[in-house]
Design a protein around this nucleic acid. Structure first.
Lengths: 247, 247
DNA sequence: CCAAAAGTGTTCGGACTACACCCATGT
DNA sequence: ACATGGGTGTAGTCCGAACACTTTTGG
């Protein structure tokens, strides 16, 4: 693996969030032979846009493309390196001796977060340094490398703030869903209960839901209406928010 | 100048904003022998926190410390380098041949912005590559290097958004000021008129202003009350905002 | 006295909150 | 029938937008 193709000092970490069993989950890699987990990350090729490098990480781990991916913060503490971990991995033969210096260097890491539909990620892909790639509940994180716990925390804070000004759900929910399901997503992200009736009104007011005319049967209660996102309107609402601060 | 003390590939650009003559101004450096301007920037020492490096840039150019300085975005396009400009500067003897490679490399630049009190910056300091360091009105920018125009634009957008949830003015106004003066600052940042009465009510509701009991005399109209910021309350309001997304 | 701009109060409407009620579904 | 949770309506409250009047200052 030739490290000379990458920009030194710069890394990318992706907080890939999915929603399952009414829980927010983040995609993590378990480092071989160690009880330490890490965010999927990567480096930037010499002639590659930073955002593209992030997109490539997402693609590599999940197979997904065209997903909402957003830079949210840079992590640049002086002690952001992992000498001990790298030494151990070299000793275990996981990393070749030749790449010790590369991985042990200090990185400035750009944090990105993505929202993906859990079900569409068939088989998360570990890399050669990791023995597992799993969805881990956000509120039950294992020991993480360096500051990755903090990175996840910051991603979650960012997500909560975004929720106040933008609809969220496309990419995070299946194609078809009910309003109660969408509400469960919101409640999970915000970590608090919302009023059913007010939520419905607010979300319908966005004008981004399409009534499919179908209902979700099977439960021991009134069958809720199944909706789809009106993707054009959805994108327009997002764009309106982003535009809000034109120069 | 030994470049081996710095992290490669990573740079910092600071959008230092001041307020004067009812205009927002940004501190720019004019590159020697060229009609191109640049944001004050710098690099990160090998064992220096990223945020500290940004603070150092601010200190170096303005002499100011303990100023609100915030990371707002990373600029990582693949073509973010300045080969032609560097070649010209080396040819002109401004940059030593030995540092050509350093300055011509591709940088991932972390954007910071700062709000400073115009009057407190006595004499902005140019560096050895620049022949001037001046306050330039934000809506009358000269030709800028690489993507620095875009960086300033993004900083302004960020500032406008911050304004919606936080008070701004400490660091940007003199110690004593009137509410109409504070309103002029807001109107300049937001680039639109605000209602006098609603503005007054809203800003007083924050509880961060102290009536000094004095009035600004001299104008041909009723003398406005002079206020000071209640700095403790001000910081608390800011902290409350930042805390708002606790895990 | 007059122009100019500061200080004060009131009203209106929209958005969010907090509720109570009815309806459909599976057991 | 009944427990469960979905769909609908309504009154109260808060906040911001819009606007009219009075007060103070210098000329």
């Amino acid at each position: 693996m030739d490290r000379s193709n990458y920009l030194p000092s710069v890394s990318i970490d992706c907080v890939i969030l999915g929603f399952h069993d009414n829980e927010l989950r983040v995609l993590l890699l378990k480092i071989k032979n160690l009880n330490i987990w890490a965010l999927p990350g990567g480096f930037v090729e010499l002639s590659q846009d930073l955002d593209l490098a992030a997109t490539a990480v997402l693609k590599r781990r999940t197979g997904l493309e065209d997903i909402f991916l957003k830079q949210f913060k840079v992590f640049g503490a002086a002690d952001r390196n992992q000498v001990e971990t790298v030494d151990k991995m070299v000793a275990d033969g996981i990393l070749p001796e030749a790449s010790r210096a590369w991985f042990a260097q200090r990185f400035i890491s750009v944090g990105y977060y993505a929202l993906v539909e859990y079900a569409e990620v068939i088989k998360p892909q570990p890399d050669f340094t990791s023995e597992a790639c799993e969805w881990v509940p956000l509120n039950d994180l294992p020991p993480m490398i360096i500051d990755h716990t903090e990175i996840i925390k910051q991603a979650h804070i960012t997500l909560k703030k975004e929720l106040n000004y933008q609809p969220i759900g496309l990419n995070l929910l299946p194609d078809e869903f009910t309003i109660p399901e969408l509400q469960a997503l919101y409640e999970t992200i915000l970590m608090r209960k919302l009023d059913r009736r007010n939520f419905r009104r607010k979300i319908l007011a966005y004008g981004i839901l399409i009534d499919t005319g179908q209902r979700r049967m099977g439960a021991q209660n009134r069958a809720p209406i199944i909706y789809k996102f009106n993707k054009e309107e959805y994108q327009q609402v997002l764009a309106r928010e982003l535009e809000s601060g034109i120069f």
